[in-house]
Amino acid sequence: MMGIHQSQLAPAANKFHVGNGDDGKHYWLTPPDIYRALDVRFSFDFDPCPFPKPDGFDGLTCEWGQSSYVNPPFGSILHQGPGDKAPKKKGPTAWARKAIEEQNKGKRVVLVYPVDKWLLMLLAAGAKVENLGDVRWRATEDGSEGKGTGRHIACFILEPKDTPSAGLPGEGR
């Protein structure tokens, strides 16, 4: 029998909220040296994910500063916005949407979030990224259409790099 995927669990049961391993810790702050180096570059004036979080503070619905540092929860949280009748599970997509909303207001946002190393390698190599949506992959056995993963699939495109030309004899450089 297969277990339920973390994304289907209530936030209180999500692995990101029960702690890491035996120590049970699950609130992690940015190391001071990393924060200082980023602050020197970007002059932060706001943190929508402060610790400790003041009573009634809501980083997903408040106005952010001109230069915000965002170290959001790495899992999902229960969040009830102003228009929500009941709390909803919100994860990294909600923080990305809010960051883009603030950017569209002419503000700078520096959002940190764990990703796999291979993604950073592809981006550093100049990969272009396209969204293929929730692909309905085909079964190898009979070609039937699957249900999709419930996640969008990124398409990474690495174009050939220009190679320096040795030049033809007699060509000026």
Score class of each variant (00 low, 15 high):
Ala96Phe: 14
Gly75Trp: 03
Arg97Ser: 14
His79Trp: 15
Asn71Lys: 05
Ala94Gln: 12
Thr93Val: 15
Lys89Ala: 15
Lys88Cys: 14
Phe51Gln: 04
Val70Asp: 04
Arg36Cys: 05
Phe51Cys: 00
Asn104Cys: 09
Val70Phe: 08
Gly91Trp: 09
Gly75Phe: 01
Gly56Cys: 01
Ile100Lys: 08
Trp64Glu: 02
Ile100Val: 11
Asn104Tyr: 04
Gly91Leu: 10
Gly65Ile: 02
Arg36Met: 08
Asp55Ser: 08
Ile77Ser: 14
Val40Trp: 06
Gln103Leu: 09
Gly83Asn: 15
Asp58Phe: 03
Gln80Val: 07
Ala94Arg: 07
Asn71Arg: 08
Phe46Cys: 04
Arg41Thr: 05
Phe46Ile: 03
Phe44Leu: 02
Pro54His: 04
Asn71Met: 05
Ala37Glu: 10
Cys49Gln: 01
Val70His: 04
Arg97Leu: 13
Thr61Gln: 12
Cys62Trp: 07
Tyr69Asp: 03
Pro72Ala: 07
Asp55Trp: 03
Gln66Ile: 06
Asp47Arg: 00
Pro54Val: 04
Ala99Tyr: 06
Ala99Val: 06
Ala99Leu: 10
Arg97Val: 12
Gln103Thr: 10
Pro73Gln: 09
Pro72Glu: 07
Ser76Met: 13
Ser68Gln: 00
Ser43Asp: 12
Gly81Phe: 11
Gln66Glu: 10
Leu38Glu: 04
Asp45His: 00
